[in-house]
Design a protein around this nucleic acid. Structure first.
Lengths: 111, 111
DNA sequence: AGGCTTTATCGACTATCGTCGATTGACGAT
DNA sequence: ATCGTCAATCGACGATAGTCGATAAAGCCT
């Protein structure tokens, strides 16, 4: 049990931060909301077309989002199908969680 | 009403991102959780002592957190009293909000 | 096999961010 | 008035992150 006054352990703070970092970029927000609106998986090319940024940039952001399991990938032929991970959307920590010291949800777990 | 397929407008995405940016740093997370545990206002010096980073750094982070109204400031003599803003903690957007295109809560509003 | 398409990766450039130390500015106490 | 304390600001530095263009890798289709 945590005392009332000791700071949140650094390691835990960094886990939390890594969650928020994933959504701390406007382009990533656009991509995520795009994938969520279309509930069906999208190919990278489709995301590129819809988001207006370069292909390598989109690929990079999708990789970041996939690392937090925020989106899921599935290769199909030469294409990569990305879709939103509803479970991770739900378990994404809220500010209240941080503030109340709720244990950080582990990314792989919430799948 | 937003169609099902058009990307989230850039401006809105950036507003969202600015919320998440505020919690996208481990030190800031520690400071926030510190202020929340002590429900009473804390002076900058106290935060410095408890967080182990330099005074100017703490001041900087507190400024950032205050800009999103995540913490509230009140000067008292030479000291600055920072306390958590419960209202903004509650209205902090969740990942689900982003995904479903819920309108971004305006920082000043949620006070 | 050869070419085409799709995506991932690499390298480079820039901008932003976190941190520090030093300085400045306010305020209170003596 | 001066000194001491507290917090904010400034300047600098290193590190990280976003973007792009070009290249490479993998798979399909004739």
């Amino acid at each position: 049990m945590n005392g009332d006054s000791d700071p949140l352990p650094r390691a835990e703070a960094e886990e939390y931060a890594s969650w928020f970092k994933a959504l701390a970029d406007a382009t990533r927000i656009q991509i995520v909301s795009l994938l969520a609106r279309r509930r069906a998986p999208m190919t990278v090319g489709e995301v590129v077309a819809a988001s207006g940024v370069g292909q390598s940039t989109v690929s990079h952001h999708l990789k970041i989002l996939a690392e937090v399991r925020f989106v899921l990938v599935e290769r199909q032929g030469t294409a990569s199908l990305y879709r939103i991970n509803e479970a991770c959307v739900r378990c994404f920590p809220t500010a209240a969680d941080v503030v109340m010291g709720k244990p950080v949800p582990a990314a792989p777990t919430c799948e």
